Simulated scan of single mutants.
Amino acid sequence: MTVVDEQSNTIRSGLARALDISVVIIVGVWHLAYVGPSLVLSIPAYRSAPVELVSWCVLAVLLALGSYRLLTARRLAAWPWTAAAVLATGAVAVSAVPGDEITGSANWAFGDVVLIGVLLVLRERLIAFGVVFLANIALNLAALTIGDHHLDRAVIARFVVIACADGIMIPSAVLLAARALDDVAAVAGSATRRRARSQADRQVADALHEDRRARYEALRSRVGPILDGLADGTLDADVADVQRRCAIEAARLRRLFAESDDVPDPLLHEIRACASAAERRGVLVELATAGHLPRLPLQVRRSLTEPVIEALAATGSWARITVYGEPDAVVVSAVGDCGGAADPLWLDARWDR
């Protein structure tokens, strides 16, 4: 997982935890501060007050378990069992409510069951919410149909209003808030990824610009004096030392151009570029390789090719370059005739991991 993905997940988990805490507070306040007083004030109307009190306590326990589940991100049981427990408790509470009070304040379980059910199945699939909503409405409708013998349009209208408000609208608002926060988290994660990608691109562009500027300054500091000297006549192109300096800088230029090429063996590619500059002067260059070359950093490759450039610049007619590689070491050797001298010129460089 990348750093950007970790940032996206952090945003998503932070928003999800904020929603969990909000739902726990809302449902807890509802159950204690609203349902509790309604239950106490309606005790004379119940068929059995102990049944109502026990049901309220059982729902409080389920609320506490659901809160623990959300706040600790632990699974207590499969959602059908938790949904069945809260619906069964609600059915028991409704059974003690007289039929003509099903649509009144005495039927506190109508909205309470659904809110606690939402808390219990908040991180489950959408079908879990549908089951809790519809089953709760069906239980209360059955209790109303069986218990109230004076059904009329007013009673039915009140039931529909309560079903829409307590049974659907309030819990649906929680569900929509959860979905909205998930969408916000996705957007925030996408924005984080785009910002990180933009920053990475800008850093790469700045690094490339700085590298090119450094190369230009290095070239100007070496090649500039030679070109100025040749232009104003202070350097003579027929002098061997001037020719050697020109050959060295020409080889370095070719190496510089080769460094940006995407090739399997960058070191060999840059050595061939240096040899090409010597071959243009009529030098016969032989290149031999052995072993397997590891992937080397740019500065290491430059250090290994410097002896090759020096040897080729001093060579008059022939040169031999040998490259030997192994996983932990690379040796580059260059041998040349050194302009007709008795002993050949031999330079080498070695890199060890």
Rank of each mutant, 00 (worst) to 15 (best):
Leu62Gln: 06
Val92Lys: 04
Arg47Gln: 14
Ala314Leu: 03
Val51Ala: 14
Arg280Asp: 14
Phe110Thr: 02
His31Cys: 04
Ala138Asp: 08
Pro297Trp: 06
Phe110Gln: 03
Ser67Met: 05
Ala77Cys: 10
Ala64Cys: 10
Val242Leu: 05
Asp5Ile: 07
Ala258Pro: 01
Arg272Thr: 10
Val131His: 06
Ile26Phe: 15
Arg123Asp: 09
Gly233Thr: 12
Ala278Arg: 02
Glu52Tyr: 00
Ser22Thr: 03
Leu296Ala: 12
Arg280Gly: 08
Leu134Arg: 03
Ile168Cys: 03
Ser317Val: 06
Leu230Glu: 04
Val61Tyr: 05
Arg245Met: 12
Leu87Ala: 05
Gly340Met: 09
Leu208Pro: 00
Leu235Ile: 12
Ala177Gln: 07
Ser22Trp: 06
Met1Leu: 10
His292Pro: 00
Gln203Thr: 13
Pro294Arg: 08
Ala240Leu: 14
Ala143His: 01
Arg179Tyr: 11
Tyr324Asp: 05
Glu124Leu: 06
Ala143Pro: 01
Glu326Ile: 04
Ile248Trp: 01
Glu101Cys: 09
Glu210Trp: 10
Arg179Val: 07
Trp346Phe: 12
Gly316Met: 05
Ala85Lys: 01
Trp56Gly: 00
Val23Lys: 02
Arg179Phe: 08
Val24Pro: 00
Val86Met: 07
Leu144Ile: 05
Val223Ser: 09
Ala237His: 12
Ile156Gln: 08
Arg295Val: 13
Arg179Asp: 13
Asp236Met: 05
Glu210Pro: 01
Ala247Leu: 09
Ala78Ile: 04
Leu298His: 11
Trp346Gly: 03
Thr305Lys: 01
Asp236Ile: 11
Cys246Pro: 03
Ser190Leu: 14
Ser276Ala: 15
Ser333Phe: 05
Asp211Trp: 13
Val86Asp: 00
Leu219Asn: 08
Ala237Asp: 14
Gly36Ala: 13
Ser13Tyr: 03
Val308Phe: 02
Gly99Trp: 06
Arg12Cys: 04
Ile25Pro: 05
Ala165Gln: 13
Leu141Ile: 14
Gly99Arg: 06
Pro344Ser: 08
Ser198Tyr: 10
Ala165Leu: 14
Ile11His: 11
Asp183Ala: 14
Ala258Ile: 06
Arg202Pro: 00
Tyr324His: 13
Ile102Ser: 10
Cys246Ala: 15
Leu70Asn: 00
Ala45Ser: 13
Ile102Val: 15
Leu39Ala: 04
